[in-house]
Simulated assay, not measured.
Amino acid sequence: MIRYIVQRLIGMIVVMFLVVTIVFIIVRVTPGDPAAVMLGPDATPADIAALRSQLGLDQPLILQYVYYIGNLLKGDLGRSIFLNQPVLSALSDRAEPTFFLTLFSIIIACVVALPVGIYAAYRRGSLVDQVATALAMFAASIPSFWLGLLLIQFFAVRQGWFPVSGYGGPDAGFLDRMWHLCLPAIALGLVSSALILRFTRASMLDVLGDDYVRTARAKGLDERRVVLRHALKNALIPIITVIGLTMAVLISGAVVTETVFGLPGVGNLVVSAVLRRDYPVIQGALLVIAALYVLINFAIDMLYLLVDPRVRY
C-alpha cells in the first residue's frame, strides 16, 4: 500500500512537470504580444520593446522557463501582467463561484442519474429503461452553453424566477450569490448526468445477474435490500470512477458556462487572460486545474479500498 502511494505521488509529480512544460511552451508560441495588447494600437515599437524588457519577455525562452520553474518551486505562480497582482491571489478571488458551481452541478447530476440509472437497470427493457436511455443520449449531445441559454430565456427572461447573469452585487449575501448559480448548475448538472446515468445502468446490469444476487433473492431478502445493498455495493467502483472524472471535467470545463452566465469565476478569468495574452494567469490557472484533476484521480483510487475490501494495491 505504501509503495503504491509513493509510486502514485512520483507519477503525479512527473505529470505536473509535463503539464507545466507543455503549457509554458504553448502560451509562448501562440501568436500575440501582451506588451502590444497592453499599450494599444498607437504604441511605438520602442514603447513595446521597453515594456517587454520590463516584463522579462525579451529574455531567451529557456531562461524564462528556468526562472518560472524556480519560482514554482518556491510556491510563486507569478504575477498577472494586466491585473497587477499575484496569480495565486487572482485565482483565490475567483475560486468561490467555480467551486460552488462544480459542487452544485455534481450534486444535481448524481441526484438525477443515480436513481434513474439504478431503476432503469432493474427494469431492463421496460419503457422506463428505454426512455431513460434515450434521454441520456439526448442530454449527452446537448452543449451546456446552449442549454444554459435556453434556461436563461425561459426561467430568467420570461418567468423572472432567476437572475439572468452575474454573481450578485458587492454587498450580496451568500444565499443571493448561490441563487445566481442555480441556472448554470442545472445546465451543467443535467448534461453531466447523462454519462453518470449510462455508467450506473451498465454497472448495475453487470451485477444484477450474478450468482450472489440470485442467492440473496432465493433466501427471501427484500428486493430493495437486494438491489441497493448487495448489487449496488458491488457496482460502485465504476460509478465512483465516472463521478470523480465528471467532477474533474466540470472544474476544467466550466469556462464556457461561466462566460455565458457572466460568473466571475476561474473560467472567466482564463478566457480574459487568453484574450490579453496574460501568460502568468494562463499558466497558473491551468497548473491548478491539472493539479486538481490529478488529486481527484488519486482520491478515487483511495476510495476503492473503502468501497471494495477485495481491492489491494
Results as ranks from 00 to 15, higher is better:
Met1Asp: 05
Met1Trp: 10
Ile2Gln: 12
Tyr4Lys: 03
Ile5His: 15
Ile13Val: 14
Phe17Met: 12
Ile22Lys: 12
Val29Lys: 13
Pro34His: 08
Met38Asp: 04
Leu39Ile: 04
Leu39His: 06
Asp42Ile: 08
Thr44Pro: 09
Thr44His: 13
Thr44Cys: 08
Pro45Arg: 05
Asp47Leu: 04
Ala50Arg: 05
Leu51Asn: 06
Ser53Asn: 14
Gly56Met: 07
Leu57Ser: 11
Gln59Thr: 07
Gln59Trp: 10
Tyr65Met: 09
Val66Lys: 10
Tyr67Ile: 10
Leu73Cys: 08
Lys74Arg: 14
Gly78His: 02
Ile81Gln: 06
Gln85His: 09
Gln85Leu: 10
Pro97Val: 00
Thr98Gln: 09
Phe104Met: 05
Ile106Glu: 08
Val112Pro: 04
Ala113Tyr: 11
Ala113Ile: 06
Pro115Asp: 14
Tyr119Ser: 14
Ala120Phe: 11
Ala121Asn: 11
Ala121Pro: 02
Tyr122Phe: 12
Ala132Tyr: 09
Thr133Ala: 12
Leu135Pro: 06
Phe138His: 09
Phe138Gln: 14
Ala139Lys: 05
Ala139Val: 01
Ser141Lys: 08
Ser141Met: 06
Leu149Trp: 01
Leu150Pro: 13
Leu150Met: 15
Ile152Ala: 02
Phe154Arg: 07
Ala156Leu: 03
Val157Met: 14
Arg158Pro: 00
Arg158Trp: 13
Phe162Pro: 00
Val164Gln: 13
Leu175Ile: 09
His180Arg: 02
Pro184Gln: 02
Ala187Gln: 02
Ala187His: 02
Gly189Thr: 03
Val191Cys: 14
Leu195Asp: 14
Leu197Arg: 05
Arg198Ser: 06
Arg198Glu: 05
Phe199Cys: 10
Arg201Thr: 00
Leu205Asn: 02
Asp206Trp: 11
Asp206Val: 02
Val207Gly: 12
Leu208Arg: 01
Asp211Thr: 00
Asp211Lys: 07
Tyr212Gly: 00
Arg214Leu: 13
Arg217Lys: 11
Ala218Lys: 09
Asp222Val: 03
Val226Glu: 06
Leu228Tyr: 06
Leu228Ala: 01
Arg229Val: 05
Leu232Tyr: 03
Asn234Arg: 04
Leu236Glu: 09
Pro238Leu: 07
Ile239Met: 12
Ile240Leu: 15
Thr246Met: 05
Met247Asn: 09
Ala254Met: 07
Val255Cys: 09
Thr257Ala: 03
Glu258Trp: 07
Phe261Thr: 00
Gly262Leu: 03
Gly265Arg: 01
Gly265Ile: 00
Val266Asn: 06
Gly267Ala: 04
Asn268Gly: 10
Val270Met: 10
Val271Arg: 07
Ser272Arg: 11
Ala273Pro: 04
Val274Tyr: 11
Val274Ile: 15
Leu275Asp: 11
Pro280Asn: 05
Ile282Arg: 03
Ala285Pro: 06
Leu286Trp: 00
Leu287His: 05
Leu295Glu: 02
Ile296Trp: 08
Met302Leu: 15
Leu303Thr: 01
Leu306Gly: 10
Val307Tyr: 11
Pro309Met: 05
Pro309Phe: 02
Arg310Ala: 01
Arg310Glu: 04
Arg312Lys: 11
Tyr313Asn: 06
